[in-house]
Simulated assay, not measured.
Amino acid sequence: MEVSKASIQKAVANNIISEQQGIALYNFFQEENQHTPSFTFTHILYYLGGLIAIGAMTLFMNLGWEQFGGAGIVFISMLYAGVGLKLANSFARKHLIIPAGICATFVVCLTPLAIYGFQQWLGFWPQDDAVYRQFHTRVKWLWLYMELGTLVTGLTIAWRYKYPFLIMPIAVTLWYISMDAVMLIVDQDNMWNSYTWEFRAQVSMYFGIVMTLLAFWVDIRSRHVADYGFWLYLFGVIAFWGGLTSQNSDSEVSKFFYFCINLVMVGLGALLVRKVFVIFGALGCCFYLGHLASSVFRDSWLFPVALTAIGLGVVYVGIWWQKNEVKITRQARRVLPKLVQELLEGKLR
């Protein structure tokens, strides 16, 4: 829970703490939270500038860079990486953690460009019609060398600097690998061609489960340090939910099972205090209800009435939950492993 200046002023007004204690407490929280990402103008400038720089060397690359040739691309990438590491070290010495993490992340994001240039330089690039600007928009097996190299670089720099934002390119790279590895299998065996979409959806779903479990493991291991699991949770849930939603079935039982899985995601998000589960779970529930309204109960006047009753019932459950939340959560935590209890305690303070 974030403590605002207004909250401290109310505590002073109610004689809970003195005015001097309120000032000291506010200054303490300000110092504690200055390196934690938040929606402040300073942090917005940090991330806006960092994402512009990262986007310039990734998403917004144009064909003009191809004229430098493989050797030129490698040289420019190494030059940029040197500047990025220099800035990261400089910011770290000044205890500017967020800018240091952004600069270190910028270096990791340069890795696929450098590997692409290196392959072109040595004449190992397999396709003349594939260029680097397609890396983030096309699913191809030939990106795997770039992705594996980025994964190694990302893990190395994350181990060196230990900034949570460095997990972002690692999570994205793992997601890309899951998609491009499928294309490698499909391209090698023509028998898969008729099942490409379904097969890719299943791989995405199972890979999302693995990444989410990895995020949970990282979350427990780093529960006393920083939030290293955020980006893994984000892309794990996206991969799982995207693969699950892409499954095609004419069975109403399967669709209802899909609805139940999304309800579980909402509950899991509330338990782990992870909004990404709640958001995608709620979207899935809305999709299922939309299916019922447009297909199953299309001509029934009772469905909107029943749905309204269900909605009001959910609101009532929320009121009941608010009154009994402390009691229920305490009883529920007792059956959980001690490590999970410590993780939840840290998030719910």
Rank of each mutant, 00 (worst) to 15 (best):
residue 43 H to T: 03
residue 237 V to K: 09
residue 214 L to Y: 11
residue 9 Q to Y: 11
residue 265 M to P: 00
residue 318 G to R: 09
residue 348 L to G: 13
residue 123 G to I: 00
residue 313 G to M: 04
residue 338 K to N: 03
residue 114 A to W: 00
residue 111 T to A: 11
residue 222 S to T: 06
residue 151 L to V: 02
residue 75 F to P: 01
residue 77 S to H: 00
residue 95 H to Q: 15
residue 91 F to H: 13
residue 100 A to W: 04
residue 141 W to L: 12
residue 169 P to C: 09
residue 71 A to H: 00
residue 284 G to R: 07
residue 94 K to G: 05
residue 310 I to Y: 07
residue 162 K to E: 00
residue 320 W to Q: 04
residue 41 F to G: 01
residue 199 F to S: 11
residue 243 G to H: 03
residue 232 L to H: 10
residue 311 G to N: 03
residue 6 A to Y: 10
residue 226 A to W: 00
residue 103 C to T: 10
residue 246 S to R: 11
residue 152 V to M: 07
residue 230 F to G: 13
residue 97 I to L: 13
residue 349 R to D: 08
residue 321 W to T: 10
residue 100 A to T: 01
residue 16 I to A: 14
residue 3 V to L: 14
residue 253 V to W: 14
residue 36 T to E: 13
residue 179 M to V: 10
residue 256 F to A: 15
residue 185 I to S: 14
residue 262 N to K: 13
residue 284 G to N: 09
residue 295 S to L: 14
residue 3 V to E: 00
residue 240 F to S: 04
residue 89 N to K: 14
residue 98 I to K: 04
residue 15 N to T: 05
residue 331 Q to K: 12
residue 120 Q to K: 07
residue 96 L to F: 14
residue 180 D to F: 09
residue 115 I to A: 10
residue 116 Y to P: 00
residue 64 G to F: 09
residue 281 G to Q: 06
residue 176 Y to T: 08
residue 251 S to A: 07
residue 93 R to V: 08
residue 39 F to I: 05
residue 137 T to P: 01
residue 169 P to S: 12
residue 71 A to W: 02
residue 120 Q to D: 04
residue 213 L to T: 12
residue 39 F to N: 12
residue 107 V to S: 06
residue 97 I to Y: 02
residue 42 T to Q: 15
residue 90 S to C: 10
residue 208 G to V: 03
residue 309 A to Q: 11
residue 23 I to Q: 10
residue 316 Y to D: 12
residue 238 I to N: 06
residue 54 I to W: 02
residue 42 T to G: 09
residue 151 L to C: 04
residue 118 F to P: 00
residue 159 W to L: 02
residue 239 A to T: 06
residue 87 L to M: 15
residue 142 L to K: 07
residue 206 Y to V: 05
residue 322 Q to W: 10
residue 336 L to R: 04
residue 245 T to Y: 05
residue 139 V to T: 10
residue 236 G to T: 02
residue 240 F to Q: 03
residue 228 Y to K: 14
residue 213 L to E: 07
residue 340 V to T: 13
residue 91 F to V: 11
residue 230 F to E: 13
residue 216 F to Y: 14
residue 306 A to V: 07
residue 119 Q to F: 12
residue 119 Q to G: 10
residue 192 W to K: 02
residue 110 L to Q: 03
